[in-house]
Design a protein around this nucleic acid. Structure first.
Lengths: 327, 327
DNA sequence: TTGTAGGCGTTATCAG
DNA sequence: CTGATAACGCCTACAA
């Protein structure tokens, strides 16, 4: 392995000068610099990040923790983060955590390893709370998920209002029996969206039978189908449903149609996220769009601000209801 | 920041002993070890990976390069890798490369940084070739994409045979005018699948008008729609189409239906991958299923073998045609 | 069984 | 503008 020493010897300068060239200190005379540069090329030298890190504790690497890469929602948020990171000369690494708090210890290890200059966390706020307590030195920012009233800056939509908006839309269409398909309340988004739903129903003086809220533990298509089948068995059967994820909504539509119902005539469906397939599926899905890309971009900007020593305020990004054919 | 020295002082031992405890050398007497352990706990000490790395060059971190996290195909492959990695006490990090060979230099930097013990690469073989030349020290394994005749071990299906199978299936259904929607031939899978398609057509003594092969540069739904619109404009119009990705296939079906054709009666469609939405979309998609999870698992096993100094042979995993309603 | 001390490859502080 | 040299935190001969 070739080191700065080899380069220095080859270029007949000191290691200090090599280091200066490497780090673009403009105090090196051009001919000297050129000698160093060609030595670097000749020896195919690469700096050893671990050694540099030991000195500078800077890797220009950022980590994002995402619960589930199969959910297309996260993929685009990550892309937004990555774009901004690279613009600022950081590289983004992704760790799929699979929501497993059993792995909490492994996180803490990763996060305290100093291998990353900062973290954007999309994990459930329940685990976020545990982990962030133990990891205080590390610049840390939350995206979509966050611990309420916490000092950690975050970016998110107003989950509660968004769910309320979905219900209001259905109420305006004349629905009274509106059900709710939820993923898992270890997510703050799940809690807040359910609150938004319940609030809107209460405001409209509409009862919510317990079985109208189906919490299925995840967002896979199959779980949406499961929830729909349960809803189909109810009497009185709901005439509309809000799902906290497009994937749940699509799974549910599939099951409703298999069950012989027509969407939206006999069962209206509203989803969340506006993932790409939402527009293609038939009927196309009415959904609360989140600014996925901007969510990621703003989260990364927050993190960059933290790198600069600032304490940026959290941001709430706007959501929009996109009316299509499912409701 | 607390170091081994602090711990040593606190426990009244030497740094060497602390290090031994840290690395579970069993040459430390129990009471001594306990003293060290409680010192570690008391001071909330964590080893600094970068310092350790500088000495041992081992991180127990594995990197996977994937072109596009929006493609649900990759998400599950990654999950397979992650599961096996963690079983063996490695952590998996994901880097979305966005197929950008402009970023080649950044890769090489990442890969030569010694921050990762190994790499599983799913990037286009064209960039793989360039990068792997410059990165020889690093254990390196390819998944799905690979440089043919290369020394790098890889896991993949038989892309050519799989495409041939898709065509044979359509031929058996009586189709003669079969088109092909391709993504980008910088991928070896794209080249090989097209060969498989052309071979099967030639065998059946069927002509392939140039415009029957639509290469759209990616796998987004919208690109599938684009290809379909072009195919619709052709005379004679194809009666069936094979797409190299389910996402392309679904986009195409959408466009065919918008164009007034019924699938599969007027246009049969076969996809590739069997991603979750393939079964839900209507008509449900006939597709060549890849063993996504196993692809990732086997790739990681190959890498682990490389860590042990072995030179494992490449593996070809079986594909299956899943007949549904689109063809 | 435990301690001492040197070095991993870099960067940065000094002098010169 | 350039060079010598001392850290950064850890691991591991080698010695005791």
């Amino acid at each position: 392995m070739t080191t700065v020493h080899d380069v220095a010897r080859h270029a007949k300068v000191s290691t200090a000068t090599v280091s200066r060239v490497l780090n673009k200190h403009d105090s090196v005379r051009v001919p000297t610099r050129d000698r160093v540069l060609s030595a670097i090329a000749a020896l195919n030298y690469r700096v050893d990040v671990s050694a540099r890190l030991l000195r500078t504790s800077q890797t220009r690497l950022v980590l994002t923790l995402v619960p589930d890469l199969m959910n297309p929602f996260y993929a685009e948020v990550v892309r937004g983060m990555g774009a901004v990171a690279r613009q600022h000369d950081y590289e983004l690494l992704v760790c799929e955590t699979m929501e497993s708090d059993a792995r909490e210890r492994a996180y803490v290890q990763m996060l305290t390893s100093r291998l990353y200059d900062g973290v954007v966390c999309m994990d459930p706020f329940t685990t976020q709370r545990l982990v962030s307590e133990q990891v205080q030195e590390l610049p840390w920012v939350a995206c979509s998920e966050f611990v309420p009233d916490d000092a950690v800056p975050h970016v998110s939509i107003d989950h509660q209002q968004a769910a309320t908006d979905a219900v209001l839309y259905l109420l305006a269409k004349g629905h009274q029996r509106i059900a709710f398909i939820n993923s898992d309340e270890k997510y703050i988004y799940a809690q807040q969206r359910r609150h938004g739903y319940e609030l809107a129903m209460r405001h409209a003086q509409l009862a919510v039978p317990e079985a109208y809220v189906q919490t299925v533990g995840g967002v896979d298509f199959s779980l949406g189908e499961l929830a729909a089948r349960r809803l189909l068995a109810l009497a009185p059967r709901p005439s509309a449903v809000v799902a906290v994820s497009d994937t749940l909504a699509i799974g549910a539509m599939k099951a409703f149609k298999s069950g012989g119902l027509s969407v939206p005539q006999e069962m209206a469906v509203v989803g969340f996220d506006d993932v790409p397939i939402a527009a293609l599926f038939e009927p196309s899905l009415t959904t609360i769009a989140q600014p996925r890309r901007a969510l990621g971009e703003r989260a990364m900007h927050l993190l960059l601000a933290r790198f600069r020593g600032e304490r940026p305020p959290s941001e709430t990004l706007p959501h929009t209801l996109i009316a299509r054919n499912s409701a």
